[in-house]
């Protein structure tokens, strides 16, 4: 099998995981901050909603997303009017689906980090003239850096290994939605085991390096 057939799906997966992770850090931060600090009685509702993708079969999520993102769905319709393209079976649609699918893996480590941060440092920062936003960026964020590391690696790795949702929402379009997990499935379906081996080994190595990197850096920080 050609290098292009091997690296194309990997590169697409990495792009998808990378963009999803960046979007998730921006989206998950305020959600996690709210969850860590609120005393609202709506907190368990939001917690449960955010955690849903962990328990739902990817096909269930994928099915609902297919409907919502489809040209006649709530978001898909609006997207078609805005850009002229459909969201389903497109890379943009995959990013949206992945963000929802990996949301708990970003929110939960961040919420845990913000919770353990507590109020003490923030109050100190406020009394030293820092506004709420300033105190977040100058104190809360750097003190939660390990939570961010976990959130980044988990979101990235989880998106990298996503299959069911992609299949439902994205299909199997080379260069657009044919990510590495789909490519592996495709090769196995056509009994092309050697290509499936190569792709699988590649994903295994990338996933291991990402997780190893996280635990290694985490340990170094703990020792400091």
């Amino acid at each position: 099998m050609s290098t292009n057939n091997l690296l194309g799906p990997l590169w697409l997966s990495v792009q998808l995981a990378g963009i999803t992770t960046i979007v998730l850090m921006i989206v998950a931060t305020p959600i996690a901050w709210w969850l860590a600090r609120t005393v609202s009685r709506w907190k368990p509702v939001v917690q449960a909603t955010v955690a849903l993708p962990i328990v739902l079969p990817p096909t269930v999520m994928g099915f609902y997303l297919l409907i919502i993102l489809g040209p006649s769905g709530a978001i898909g319709h609006w997207w078609v009017e805005l850009t002229g393209n459909a969201l389903t079976f497109s890379f943009a649609g995959l990013v949206i689906a992945s963000c929802l699918y990996s949301l708990p893996f970003a929110v939960q480590p961040l919420a845990a980090a913000f919770e353990s941060l507590g109020n003490a440092s923030l109050e100190a920062a406020w009394t030293l003239g820092a506004s709420r936003l300033d105190a977040f960026f100058a104190v809360a964020l750097p003190l939660s850096v390990r939570g961010y590391l976990s959130a980044i690696v988990l979101s990235f790795a989880h998106t990298l290994g996503e299959f069911g949702v992609v299949l439902m929402v994205g299909g199997n379009i080379p260069g657009e939605t044919r990510v590495i997990s789909i490519a592996i499935y495709d090769q196995v379906e056509s009994l092309n085991y050697s290509a499936a081996h190569q792709l699988s080994a590649l994903l295994l190595v990338v996933a291991f390096i990402a997780l190893f990197g996280m635990f290694f850096i985490n340990r170094r920080w703990r020792q400091r």
């Binding site: 003490a120 440092s121 109050e123 100190a124 920062a125 406020w126 009394t127 030293l128 003239g129 820092a130 506004s131 709420r132 300033d134 105190a135 100058a138 104190v139 750097p142 003190l143 850096v145």
Partner: peptide, 27 residues
Amino acid sequence: VHERDIGYVFQEPRLFGHLDVRSNIEF
């Protein structure tokens, strides 16, 4: 809070762990 010209010393020091002593004092 941040608009009140006060200094506050808490029961515990509450220094910022990610900053060295100088940056803490200059905060």
